[in-house]
Amino acid sequence: MMMRLLKVDMLKMKRKGMWFLTILGPVGVIALQMVNYGVRKEYLLEQSNDYWGYYLKNISAFTPLAIVLGIVILTSFMASIENETNAWKQLVALPISKMSVYLSKFTALSIMLFLSSCLLMIFTLGFGLFLDFNQEIPFLEVSQYSFFPFFAALPVLALQLWIATVSKNQGIPITVGVVGVIFAYSAFTLPDWMIWKWPSLMNEWDDPTINVWLGLGVGSLLYIIGMFDFKRRDVK
């Protein structure tokens, strides 16, 4: 059943430009570095002896912003598909459980974000090789900087999906989303407990895996709360 629902959600995403956004995110992040390194490569190489490390730091300055922004836009698109003509009443009157409807939406969004992360890794490696640092490629760090923000951002995804699916007024998820993007942008100054800081992989212990575990844990919790709230509510 889950597979079928997921296929249906993929069908509904047709012509919505969601896949385009999925690709645009990582392309945008790397494009910024193309400009950065294109304009002042010499200067940037002088900043550190660890060329790859410095390059990854530059990239990771924008990844959290791109991922939070992407989450806000994709969840609101996802909810708008059903909200536009109140198709919820048609969907929920079909012989499926409301929980699987919610799970399918969450899964579809996760797949897109995961794909974005994969692309980010490929583009990071690609442009890194093009820059020709002549140093050993730090595959572990590259994959960490590509995938850790995704896991650390799961709470934001769960929260946005929850708000977007249960709000009649789509201004609410957008407002929360915009505030979240601002938070993600100013992650440096945020306290560690705020979920919008986590995709930046910063914390006072300097251990990004903490953000990943927190992301998975709190993400699951928010997902479960959102799903049960969605199940509990009447479809108007």
Partner: peptide, 11 residues
């Protein structure tokens, strides 16, 4: 069919 028809306009 509940009230106003629900559909996906882009499909």
């Amino acid at each position: 069919l509940v009230e106003n028809p629900s559909y996906y306009p882009h499909l």
